[in-house]
Design a binder for these strands. Structure first.
Lengths: 329, 329
DNA sequence: GTGAAAGCGCTAACAA
DNA sequence: TTGTTAGCGCTTTCAC
């Protein structure tokens, strides 16, 4: 393994000078810089990032923690984060907490041990494992869930999106839409349920809400339970992409066709949403964009250690009308 | 920041002893070990992984490089890898090369600079950026693509799966199935095309193959081009999940219904495959399992630096019959 | 503008 | 069984 001092010897300069050249520190003679670069190239020198990190007391790594890597929302988010990270010389460690709070906490502890430059987390729920990180001075950005006042947040307008979805179903003539959402501990689940509830109440209708999990199976179970109830709904508002898959499964099992026998609007514009038959009317969030924004906020925090006051960025959602919400008899 | 030596002072022992305790080295007096742990806990000590890595000349990080994080095959693979990694005290850096060979090479260089403990890569094509890694002594496992004789591989039986898919379409009575696959540079694309071609020739039919990209848009374009040709196919063999989404899109645009007007069998059992209407008949690979296996091979290589000879693991595929391949008129 | 020297926090010889 | 000592490869004062 060729190291910095080898390059120094080859170029006939000191290690300090090589370090300066490689870090683009301007106070170095151009001729010498050239010589050093030539030597580095000749020897095939690769800087040891670990040694550098130890000395600098901070790595070039970001930790991203999400709760479900199978959920296209999070893969899009990850792509946004990674694109900004790579463009700025950072790289991204992806942690999948699998809806497990303990595992999430483990990743945060790890972030601290690995001295990562920053953390972007989409937490399951409000929780304080983030606080320890803050105490250690590692910048954090939270996505989709309020964590604490001192940090930056990137959120989607869950409440507004839910209102729009529910209003749309009612406008289409559905009379008893039900809502299937995530766990009560999740802020987005609560906000989406609230938006739905408000619109129902405003219309003089009784809200029916299933708090389950943001998972396919939970969606399937929730839809089945609702359909088996005394007053089954005639439409569904599925509060994320995984739940909507589950609802589709139950509908299929029972020979019901969305956009005809029942109505369906889902949160999240998944890759398959426009390609299923019927295609799915969705409230599109913009996870890639959210990833970009979260990454930018993190970059700012890392660079300017100035303590600008925390930011709360809320991105709008968009209704994309397709077939599943229509009512054709 | 509390460090190892602080714990040592608190416990009244040397740094070396603390290190031994924390690394579970058995040759240490239990009473002393207990004292050390108590001190560590009291001070809230968090080991500095960077310093440890520098000293040990290897980190606890694995680098996973895939070509498309939006493809559910790779997210399932990642979950398999991550589960094994976490269970063994490693963590996983996920790199998304986005079908860009240069970006792939960047990740490998990074892996070297970061001194990762090992690399699992699903390379775009045969290429030699892996060789540099090997030279630096970092163990590598390749998935889905042969790279070079000296490393371990985990593969799916693309050829067998493709034969089965094609035979199935013919058995259903489709007469002119066409194949849409990935780029010619991709080994899986070639193997799947070959399996298809063989079965067609054996049946006395003319194979029609579109080599495109493993992307939704490519699948849509390929299907459109085929349908616009002089002798349009009456069925499609889509060689991965993304392509099959694209084929569905084109069919939908043209008002064709799979399982009725045209036949469709796809590689990859995606989350939506059984939930679309019609549901999609697929050749299931087992990406989660492949991730597990790749991770196990990597573990072996990391632990036993013994040079066991390279392994080629080929996992079987399974036909899952659903609706899209049926022929009902 | 450049070099010498110290040290980031930890582990691993070696000695006791 | 425990402590002492010497680095891992790099960056960064501090002199010159």
């Amino acid at each position: 393994m060729v190291k910095l001092v080898d390059v120094a010897n080859e170029a006939g300069v000191s290690a300090a000078t090589v370090s300066r050249v490689l870090n683009d520190i301007p106070t170095v003679d151009p001729a010498m810089a050239k010589r050093v670069r030539a030597a580095a190239k000749k020897l095939g020198y690769r800087p040891n990032a670990v040694a550098r990190s130890l000395r600098k007391r901070r790595t070039q790594i970001w930790q991203l923690v999400v709760s479900d890597i199978a959920n296209p929302f999070y893969t899009a988010l990850a792509r946004g984060v990674e694109d900004v990270a790579v463009a700025n010389g950072y790289h991204v460690v992806l942690g999948n907490s699998k809806d497990d709070v303990a595992r999430e906490a483990r990743y945060l502890e790890l972030a601290q041990q690995e001295q990562v430059a920053g953390v972007i987390i989409a937490p399951q729920r409000r929780n304080d494992s983030v606080t320890a990180l803050l105490a250690s001075g590692i910048p954090v950005v939270a996505v989709n869930q309020t964590v604490e006042a001192r940090i930056d947040h990137v959120l989607a307008d869950s409440h507004g999106g839910a209102r729009e979805a529910t209003r749309y179903l009612l406008t289409q003539g559905w009379e008893r839409p039900a809502c299937i959402t995530g766990p009560t501990t999740s802020e987005t689940a609560q906000h989406r349920a609230r938006g739905y509830r408000e619109v129902m109440v405003e219309a003089g209708l009784s809200p029916v809400i299933e708090f389950r999990a943001y998972q396919t199976q939970a969606g399937a179970d929730g839809a089945a339970a609702l359909l088996d109830s005394d007053t089954p709904p005639d439409a569904f508002f599925a509060c994320n992409a995984m739940i909507s898959l589950g609802v589709l499964k139950t509908l299929k099992d029972r020979g019901l066709r969305a956009g005809q026998d029942v109505g369906l609007v889902a949160f999240d514009d998944a890759p398959w949403s426009e390609l299923t038959d019927p295609s799915i009317t969705v409230i599109a969030q913009h996870p890639y964009e959210m990833g970009i924004q979260a990454a930018r906020l993190l970059l700012e925090r890392i660079r300017d250690d100035d303590d600008r006051s925390p930011v709360r960025l809320t991105l709008q959602t968009d209704l994309i009308e397709r077939e599943s919400g229509l009512r054709r008899r």
